[in-house]
């Protein structure tokens, strides 16, 4: 990640935040109100200029996601029964198996969606939260990072979808049947927790750090 480099590069440009301008934006509809307004005049949602508790939630969900990511990798993701021959495969084991069979592209996709993305999300969220915690000023690149994390997070569910669809479709009794393993649930939880974690993060905090130091 070139976050640090980007941050250093963009530190020179001060950013005028809404809070600094005496305004508070609605998180839901984007309508801007004067600072101190309690409710959005447009959509009626609660207006908060900065949610200081968001970091706690981020960390909590992030930890939960990381905890359940461990069994998601240790335990078998799929239990495939073909002609009475039962086979259990973990995520990484499945990737290697696919590679052995020569399906490198599929192996790469599975590996990317199941390993690279979740791990990257953990790192990214932790990095952003850590910066905010430390009160380090953020730059637009950090915000881009956050947007990427939030966007890409749902694609991690591609694995779970595959397992769910296969389990539903491949139920041919003796010939072949696929059942989700514990890892599937764990992985789904991990993704869900990470997404909640990412959602809990108030991106406005990225800009606040210098101000916070002033205040």
């Amino acid at each position: 990640m070139s976050g640090n480099g980007m941050a250093n590069a963009e530190r020179a440009q001060p950013v005028l935040t809404a809070r600094a301008a005496g305004l508070v934006g609605c998180a839901e509809c984007g309508h801007v109100h004067p600072l101190g307004t309690q409710e959005c005049t447009v959509c009626g949602s609660h207006l908060v200029s900065r949610d200081r508790n968001s970091l706690q939630r981020v960390w909590a969900w992030l930890f939960a996601g990381m905890v359940v990511y461990v069994p998601a990798n240790v335990y078998p993701m799929l239990r495939t029964t073909t002609f009475g021959h039962t086979k259990e495969s973990t995520i990484v084991g499945g990737v290697f198996e696919l590679m052995e069979h020569g399906s490198f592209a599929v192996a790469f996709i599975v590996f990317f969606a199941s390993v690279v993305i979740p791990v990257s999300k953990f790192i990214a969220i932790a990095y952003l939260a850590w910066r905010v915690q430390r009160g380090k000023p953020g730059t637009s690149s950090h915000f881009h990072l956050y947007e990427v994390v939030e966007f890409i997070g749902r694609w991690s569910m591609i694995d779970v979808f595959v397992v769910a669809i296969l389990s539903a479709l491949v139920q041919l009794n003796f010939v072949a049947s696929i059942h989700p393993g514990i890892a599937a649930v764990s992985f789904a939880l991990s993704v869900a927790f990470t997404m909640i974690s990412a959602n809990s993060f108030d991106p406005r905090l990225i800009w606040d750090a210098p101000e916070g130091q002033k205040v």
């Binding site: 905890v67 927790f193 809990s200």
Partner: peptide, 11 residues
């Protein structure tokens, strides 16, 4: 926050 219960339970 009560949110911390989630990772604890997960763990």
């Amino acid at each position: 926050s009560f949110v911390w219960l989630v990772p604890i339970i997960a763990l």
